[in-house]
Design a protein around this nucleic acid. Structure first.
Lengths: 192, 192, 192, 192
DNA sequence: CATGAATGAGGATTCATTCAT
DNA sequence: TATGAATGAATCCTCATTCAT
């Protein structure tokens, strides 16, 4: 194994540990020492890869966000009907939320608390462009309601996170059937 | 002013300070000393009213949640059509989110992080019963989709919080017109 | 013992400990924990009395400097001959350096290293005014060499510190006879 | 360039960096990593040339002290009158303090704090022998006061450092004229 | 009830030093 | 010889909590 690979491994281990611990305890209840222990490095080593705790969380956020959007738009094809395109994206988002719930829970927590820098948050928003483009086209074609993207997003995308949270808390089970219902509900909410 | 009143005032001041500080800094970045200072009491005094920091936050959560449900169901009348009943509740929720955004932001933060005890969280859920009853009736009457309450909630209620968050971040403005669009979208998502 | 007295005692104990430890180990080799231990308080207690380590050393410096000048000019009388006045001041300085060598060594160390803030250093210089006034009169009367005060100071006052340092290192003993010789040497260097 | 030369260069770079950083920040506020960076070597490399941080400072001290005495006694000739001999030495010391103030400030700092080992300090004192010999002759001839060498040193040599410090702090300017006054003052203080 | 002073435990971060290469 | 990566042991400082008054 090369030196570079070992470095990357260590950085990844740190990010993984950060996600797990912040998910379970919150940012401020997650000491650097625990992150180090879980990643099998010395606390001092963290500072070779990250400037400080805030930087560690910011970078973790951006890394996870990138994984998220990469996955979400990976299968997306612009040349489809609005509904098909939306379904493609929505179901990938759902799949990510179900299969990578560690990641999606982390994102949710970051999005709803003041633990992330505003710059990093802004950086994370950019990635959704394809979905916004799709909605623009949908509005032009009279298929999607002519309302603010924020409303469209709040009603068709955010609920997936809510359901994921409910599942994490053991209140609810996201089955195949459930997911289909949820998708149709999302579509009902934004279609014209 | 009676002694009892003075006590209640102090307790209220502490809860108010907790909300403001947790909203701005997060739970663990909010020291007891700052809460005390903002409430104009000694740190030691907090422990006359609350067992410890966790208890303070739990009680704050329940208190705010109670304010929330009291407000939301205050004007509710069971003897209306499903849609009217839903609109009544939904708009009160929206009104609360807009006018008392300190409170609703606090609830959102609690709902999306591990800072609240599971027992307190469970306690907070109970209060929604009238809405669940309404949905049950709606499903029976064939007006509301026959799907899990969690999905209904995720699609028709949670988005209000999302929009409130967006507004708090300055990305979005909840106007009268906007709110009406949002309501119709909510209804579209759950109506059969 | 009153509460206030206990507070003052603690502050004094901290300053005493700071002097002793910095004298023996230097500023940066003196951890707050050791200062606390020697003063019989918890490390956290230091921060009730001082903002941080730098502030602790700055305040210690000023406190010692004040003790120094208070002592030095305590017996001074303006209405004497130049030589008598100078002798009065010089011998008090010598006495302080001999009897309170902890204090004078601390001052010397502060004066010769970058551990004291510039503002605190400036603050400490002010106190020497009576000596400067005496020299002014001496120059006017043609008794003192008409050269820079800095030179006068370097030759007549600073050597006392040097001798104190030598004594501390065990190389030299400041006896009565020695001190008299040193005084005459000082006078020879500045008298016209 | 030979391998040996490269080694010497590195050692010199390290010593130079040590002087500059200790002068500006003090011994303990000067991390090995910064010294390494300023000398353009790896931190690990320092340990090829020096046993540890203390050894690095000790050796730096001795090296500078050697430069100092080499310079000071370079032009010295034993076969002169006491006054001429003293003037020769004194003016070289002054010249060194003015032209190589980085070096002399470093020496002053070492001489007034506990950062140098006692052995190294002792080692550094030896070099002054020619001056002590001169004073011995002067006392025998009845030209120099029959008092302790420590007093002679404190009054005629140390003040140069004091003036250099004052100059470094920007309070005072060591001009030609000033220096001459200072020399005469030094001579007045020790001559019989 | 109310408090200011006090603190032990713990957290982020730094640093002298080592080690595999 | 030279190094960059790695680290354990501090170090400064904070904070939830207690206690004497």
């Amino acid at each position: 194994m090369t030196k570079l690979q070992k470095s990357i491994d260590k950085r990844n281990a740190l990010i993984k540990a950060t996600i797990e611990l912040v998910n379970n305890n919150g940012f401020h209840a997650t000491p650097m020492s625990k992150i180090a222990k879980m990643a099998n490095v010395s606390p001092a080593t963290i500072y070779l890869y990250f400037e400080n705790k805030q930087d560690l969380v910011n970078q973790t956020y951006l890394e996870v966000k990138t994984k998220y959007t990469d996955f979400v738009f990976n299968t997306y094809d612009e040349n489809t009907s609005i509904k098909t395109g939306f379904e493609l994206i929505w179901k990938r988002i759902a799949e990510f939320n179900i299969n990578e719930c560690e990641y999606s829970f982390f994102l949710t927590q970051c999005n709803n608390t003041p633990i992330i820098d505003e710059p990093s948050r802004q950086e994370g928003i950019k990635h959704l462009q394809p979905l916004l483009d799709l909605w623009k086209r949908g509005k032009d074609e009279g298929v999607i309601k002519p309302i603010s993207d924020y409303i469209l997003y709040a009603y068709s995308i955010n609920p997936i996170s809510s359901l994921m949270m409910a599942q994490k808390l053991g209140q609810f089970q996201l089955t195949k059937a459930n997911t289909e219902e949820a998708f149709l509900t999302a579509w009902d909410s934004i279609k014209l």
